[in-house]
Design a protein around this nucleic acid. Structure first.
Lengths: 161, 161
DNA sequence: TATTGTTATACTCTATAACTATA
DNA sequence: TATAGTTATAGAGTATAACAATA
């Protein structure tokens, strides 16, 4: 059948494994009633209470209108709340509710469970090394430890070769 | 500002870096006139000439109708061709054209360039170790060295926590 | 006039279901 | 009847542009 002219490369493996990880996390957030994008937003708001929608949009690399929809969902579900800033009434200050904080805690548990699923077959030393290398790669490329952009310009998600 | 209660985990880093890798590859395929999904299909056809659309759909984990659209594009661009099987006239046998084969070669170059971009900051030994660990993870999870599913069930792409 | 947030709209990706032709 | 492929349609996710309130 297929003849492996060359083994897959790091870039391919990263996007393949990254898609798998994203997928498995999506399954878990779905059980908790939110999407991965909403979970990411909730986490940022938790870390930066009072952030406004514009700054959040910049941080996410998303359009302002996208943020409106995300916050609408989180607010409707009772996980986050808007409040007009008293210093500049154009701003909506975003905060996590009590219920949202409890959800964040469950999301952390889900992420820990996922961690086991993904790297369970590796010996401790290998897992530690992998973690270190990925962290260095992420830092080298200036990726924000808080943000997972999803992706930016080119629409597509899958990849190859 | 943000307080790093816990460092990002392997799952998060994988999906973050995977999205970055997918993104950078998408930029490159765009310059070559195709999408990453089309590039992946072209590669599979190149490895398995004569494969039909049903089997391709299974391999991709995509709907049959999705394959129709992908092959339509590749055929319109002159990179792949359909031909009715003479043994079972329901089947379309898929093949890469000359032009498609030349494109595959350019895609390989693009992937190699990407490899440098991604892992250039790592020492050779670290890069080799990272490669080995990623390959083992991929194998452990039964991922096909030929296929990058993009993702399967849950629609979302971004992720977090 | 510039900025924050909102709404209206449209475009891309993808799936489901109905349909055609072959078997 | 079952399977390969196609078409029609619909639903996510996301962006752009026009708009309202505030500065």
């Amino acid at each position: 059948m297929s003849f492996p002219e060359r083994p897959a490369r790091i870039g391919f493996l990263l996007s393949q494994l990254g898609a798998m990880a994203a997928d498995s996390f999506a399954t878990k957030t779905k059980e908790l009633g939110i999407t991965p994008a909403e979970a990411g937003v909730l986490r940022i708001i938790g870390h930066q209470p009072g952030i406004n929608q514009s700054d959040l949009a910049v941080k996410l690399g998303a359009a302002k209108s996208r943020v409106v929809a995300l916050i609408d969902s989180l607010e409707a579900a009772g996980f986050a709340a808007r409040s007009r800033s008293m210093r500049d009434r154009r701003n909506q200050e975003l905060r996590v509710t009590e219920s949202g904080r409890s959800l964040l805690s469950r999301l952390r548990s889900a992420a820990e469970a996922q961690e086991v699923e993904i790297a369970d077959g590796l010996a401790d030393a290998d897992r530690a090394k992998l973690y270190e290398l990925l962290l260095r790669l992420s830092a080298m490329h200036g990726l924000d430890a808080d943000v997972h952009p999803g992706y930016t310009e080119p629409s597509a998600a899958s990849t190859a070769e």
